[in-house]
Design a protein around this nucleic acid. Structure first.
Lengths: 354, 354
DNA sequence: CTGAAAGCGCTTACAG
DNA sequence: CTGAAAGCGCTTACAG
């Protein structure tokens, strides 16, 4: 009796044990898949647990097993629907395997690092960063604690870190080919940050194609991955004497800002005065309000690959970090002039390849 | 030495104690604010901790203190930028006080309940639900475990649950007054779900005002808080023989869908053929692409109040559940005809009141 | 101020 | 299959 009238305290294994007339360890086994318990005993125990409304204390379990089933997730641009979608995909897939997300959502400017370090104190099983990059110190901490770390849509030269990205270089090339074929002649690129290597990859491939075709130079501005930043970048670009007639943006979210400024502030007509192409293919891109031509990078695939990497790393602590790429395609919509040839329709959407 | 060469295992208080030549409990005190440790000892300990790269194991701490500093957060519409913003505000405010978010992001249809119940096993200090409502069972579980629960932008008749909402009734009334003053005559409402009481409150006040002015009836459709659902609702409404010339949507996100359908599928001109008003005032609402007239419900305030309630409930376990309301205002933009009188400009935005 | 000890609620060898 | 016991890494009375 003593054990059970502990007032507001939730019941523990000992309470169940007492009620079922078995040992506490028997109760533990009854809740451990694969542990050896007689069918009869397990039944008694489950009944008792049911009666008392027992739920295992996962904090205690984590302490003994040294596995928390918690995955740390840091993100710096939740206002960007692309990342909201990534978080959602991650949450759904992870919870399907009984794992949970410890979330930290920073603002684009902020360093997520200090917060994320405290995640380590929660004994997370792995760390996922998206829209943000880890510092050297964070990576070292993770390696010391044996916590695998994977970046989504970001890259790093730091050793021991896995990455999952879209087809950045291929995208840059295809978008360039598309715009060149569309008859444009003055090209610009709105990147994330100077440091962002995914943005740089897209830019490099874009620029290489354009200049190789003798259509250079490509003017670049940085939108810092924010709406306001991209709006400012667009203003700067459209104020140029040699005004671009084709802008490739490193994210749909920034492309939305470009669209805004081009139409509202400069009164430009899409496709005739100016073509804009984004990257990501977020859900909003197909809304009539934007109808954005863009290169896709599916969040579901990104989430799937990131989790696959984590699982590998957890299963085999000595596994080498991986770098995976997720396929995308150019989705043709209304914000960019369309070349005469090369458009094909699949599943109700239009795609283009050279 | 023994204690320190445990290989990949992160250092513990005992390791620090050994290195610093003190007891393990002394180390614990050094990391407990307000505990009594000599300045000298604390210094030695912190040095040792620094050298070993020690971070307290929060899982172990939680087990003794029965406080995890983890707040459970369940959300069902992260694709709606309004909720993405709410999550972000919550994350930033909570981490400022050393707390973290255990996240579960479901899809609008799904019940978050089963997942959220496992949160309880993590000994969360409180539970926040937004864009989703708890089942009776969940609420009972929470009360049993003494976990305060607060809903954001949702309501419930279940006892023991706190809520934070926008000015639903006032919004319905003001939007109605605005549209009536704008000379509209055929009113419609796109609600979330039949069950959603925040949606019902907005609708009831809207309808009451309209019919009182002899401008009824108000036709209602439900968009299920999704983009596709709202698009279908709009199609149904605009296909009506007595086609509405004014639609009030229970969320901006649904209003975006309505805008899409009205313009792309029905070729309607905003303000002359049809006025659309939303609810929330998400960041996208002021983008040129939408330029949506809407009643605001600030996520920052919602997050602040929700946390304040949680803090009250944690500080005083016997505190009664609270129901708080957060102020909003009608933000005048381009999707609805504007009455001759009543518009005032503040801080670069236009507002209206009767 | 400090250390030894018990306890938080689990898991997991180890005997039987 | 089952129980007694040690241990996970902390906190916190209790003596001194």
């Amino acid at each position: 009796m003593r054990a059970r009238d502990r007032g507001k305290q939730p019941p523990t294994e000992s309470d169940i044990a007492e009620l079922a007339g078995v040992s506490q360890s028997a109760v533990s086994r009854a809740f451990t898949p694969g542990a050896s318990v007689a069918l009869e005993t397990r039944k008694k125990i489950l009944e008792a647990a049911q009666r008392l409304g027992y739920h295992p204390n996962l904090i205690a379990r984590s302490l003994s097993t040294k596995r928390s089933n918690i995955i740390g997730l840091a993100i710096s641009s939740l206002e960007n629907p692309f990342y909201a979608q990534v978080v959602k995909e991650l949450s759904e897939r992870l919870s399907a395997t009984g794992r949970h997300i410890l979330l930290f959502a920073a603002s684009p400017g902020e360093a997520a690092d200090p917060e994320v370090e405290t995640f380590l104190s929660y004994q997370i099983d792995a760390l996922i960063l998206t829209a943000t990059s880890p510092s050297k110190e964070l990576v070292q901490q993770c390696r010391k604690s044996g916590v695998p770390i994977v970046l989504i849509n970001r890259d790093t030269s730091l050793p021991g870190v896995s990455t999952v990205r879209g087809e950045n270089r291929r995208a840059g090339e295809i978008v360039a080919a598309f715009l060149v074929a569309g008859g444009h002649s003055r090209f610009a690129f709105i990147g994330g940050t100077k440091m962002s290597s995914v943005s740089r990859d897209r830019e490099a491939a874009f620029r290489a194609f354009v200049t190789t075709r003798g259509k250079g130079p490509v003017v670049t501005r940085y939108g810092n991955y924010t709406f306001e930043g991209a709006a400012a970048a667009t203003r700067s670009l459209l104020g140029l004497r040699r005004r671009p007639d084709a802008i490739f943006c490193a994210s749909d979210y920034m492309a939305f800002a470009a669209l805004d400024v081009a139409q509202r502030e400069f009164g430009l007509a899409l496709r005739t005065d100016l073509s804009i192409v984004g990257f990501d293919d977020v859900a909003e891109a197909r809304h009539a309000a934007y109808d954005l031509t863009t290169f896709s990078q599916p969040p579901a695939a990104l989430a799937r690959e990131a989790i696959a990497i984590i699982d590998n790393q957890i299963a085999n602590r000595r596994a080498r970090p991986e770098r995976r790429e997720v396929r995308g395609e150019l989705v043709v919509r209304g914000t960019a002039r369309v070349p005469k040839h090369g458009v094909v329709a699949v599943d109700g959407r239009k795609t283009w390849s050279p």
